[in-house]
Amino acid sequence: MRKSIASYLTLTLTICILLLVSFSSNKTTDLSKYSTVGLELDYTVSQDPSIHENALASNDMNKPISPFLGKSFVGFKEALAFKESRGDYFVVNTLGYLGKYQFGSGTLKLIGIHNPSLFLKNPELQEKAFVANTQRNKWILRRDIKNFVGKRLNGILITESGILASAHLAGAGSVKNYLRSYGIDNFEDSYGTTIEYYMKKFSGYDTSSIKANKRAKAI
């Protein structure tokens, strides 16, 4: 009997709770009671004292930001390109030399490029051409690199990168003449730039990733 009464009371209580919840869910909330009218609101977040103003941006907005390439091979080719053309892939100089690295049509043919117009429009091909030409020059000058790197000519320390940069300027044959004459035969181009200048300016870069290759081609 007591068990039946307890079950009845439990059922009655459950029904009452359900009815209460049902009535409450139909009640509309008056949002006007929660208005922010008249309140002084301040959304300004205070500066974290540990963060400086120049942490994410340079104070000098006109100063260009560039990655530090150092003496890497990428640093070598980009420094050389800047000297040749200020890094412009599409420039042609007054003597007809083309692109970012200022190639002549004769040199392009040696590395498999026979369409200068196509070459000038193709930055990827220009990058391949630079690597191929440097590989070829390294093979031609391999003995001179072995014999002269570490020595000084006219006060200039001879390095592999200096030799390869000079070969890009004047051709491998002219660099051979310079080294084997111990600095006497100093080639000068039409703009007055000498092998000796390039030998010094591009000294000390890491060009070890360039493998000497007699038959290097860009295509």
Rank of each mutant, 00 (worst) to 15 (best):
I113R: 01
G150N: 12
K151P: 00
K109A: 09
R180Q: 12
N133Q: 14
P67H: 12
G192Q: 12
L108T: 04
Y101E: 04
K201W: 03
L169E: 03
F103C: 02
W139D: 06
D60H: 11
N177L: 08
K121M: 10
A165K: 05
L108K: 02
L141G: 00
Q102K: 13
A81C: 11
S161Y: 00
D206Y: 05
T207K: 02
K100N: 08
D189L: 11
G183Y: 08
F76D: 07
F119H: 04
G70M: 12
H168Y: 06
A132M: 10
A165N: 06
D185L: 12
A79C: 12
G87L: 12
F187R: 01
Y178I: 03
I113V: 14
A172E: 01
K100D: 05
S117P: 00
H168P: 05
T134K: 03
R136D: 04
F119A: 02
I65V: 15
F76A: 10
N133Y: 12
P123F: 11
K151V: 04
K200L: 12
E84W: 08
A79F: 08
E78W: 10
Q135K: 15
P64I: 14
N147A: 15
A172G: 07
I145C: 00
Y178D: 01
E127Q: 14
A79Y: 05
G204T: 09
W139G: 00
T194C: 13
T207L: 02
Y101L: 04
R136E: 05
F76N: 09
D144N: 11
F90Y: 15
A172N: 02
K176C: 02
S85K: 08
N62R: 13
I158W: 01
K151S: 15
I140G: 00
V91L: 13
D189P: 10
F68M: 14
S66Q: 15
S72C: 12
L118K: 08
L164V: 02
R152I: 00
D206A: 07
